[in-house]
């Protein structure tokens, strides 16, 4: 007899009569929707889940970001130095800082920054892609752009390239070869944090961001 819990559990499972269960039919490929349709569907669904969506261009997104932050009276912005989004933010802020929030770089381990992360007003990150059919952003936090950025501050601005909007989650997985390279943490985000635990009444920002703003860059 084997003597570890692991061996005993596995032995019991192996002793059971085997079921024949063929591999299920794979999800039929979604009709190849036009990019414009995918972006439109994503926008509609994200807005239905109370995210704010702005369609911007390569040259106008930083300006739109400034606008989003100014109208909300944001005083401090957490950003990821060294990332394309972070570099664009630094450049724009250096050119004309008037009315823009103070920048807080996420440049050290969370243990050194923890209080700072929990007190900033907003954060800006990139989205690695999006899923049109259910309406969700794909975030792939990394060493340069850590996990807490999209979670802790009350306002999260995500910058998404329109050419990374996939028709379905399955398509995003296949195109990005997820099974070969999963990051520490990958998260789908479809709106601001919400709950309906009290009388099924919807309330926002119970734990994560109260507001999600998505800038879709064409």
């Amino acid at each position: 007899m084997s003597d570890t819990a692991r061996d005993r559990i596995l032995a019991r499972l192996r002793r059971a009569p085997r079921d024949e269960a063929p591999r299920p039919a794979v999800e039929p490929p979604a009709p190849p929707a036009e990019r414009r349709e995918r972006v439109e569907r994503l926008k509609t669904l994200l807005e239905a889940m109370r995210a704010e969506v702005r369609q911007v261009t390569e040259t106008s997104w930083v300006e739109a970001l400034g606008d989003v932050l100014r109208t909300r009276g944001i005083e401090t912005l957490l950003y990821a130095p060294g990332t394309p989004v972070g570099q664009a933010v630094e450049a724009a802020w250096a050119a004309d800082p008037d009315g823009l929030p103070g920048l807080v770089p996420y440049a050290a381990a969370a243990e050194q920054l923890k209080d700072r992360i929990f007190t900033v007003d907003a954060a800006v990150t990139a989205a690695a892609g999006a899923v049109a059919d259910t309406g969700a952003l794909i975030l792939r936090p990394s060493a340069a752009e850590p996990r807490l950025m999209s979670l802790v501050p009350p306002v999260h601005v995500a910058v998404l390239r329109a050419d990374t909007v996939f028709a379905s989650l399955g398509e995003a997985m296949r195109a990005g070869r997820w099974s070969e390279d999963m990051p520490t943490n990958l998260v789908l985000v479809s709106g601001p944090s919400k709950t309906a635990d009290i009388e099924l009444i919807l309330a926002f920002g119970v734990h994560g961001p109260k507001e999600l703003i998505v800038l879709i860059v064409e």
Binding site: L45, M49, Y106, A108, A109, A110, L113, V131, D133, T134, G135, A136, S142, A143, P146, R147, L148, M182, P183, T184, N185, L186, V187, L188, V189, S190, G191, P192, S193, K194, A196, G208
Partner: peptide, 24 residues
């Protein structure tokens, strides 16, 4: 469960903090 197309968050956790990562 809730009549949603997708929940607000779907977490896919694959490892603890890797060298160089700043949180987790």
């Amino acid at each position: 469960a809730t009549g949603q197309l997708v929940t607000t968050y779907v977490n896919l956790i694959t490892s603890p903090r890797r060298p160089g990562e700043k949180d987790g």
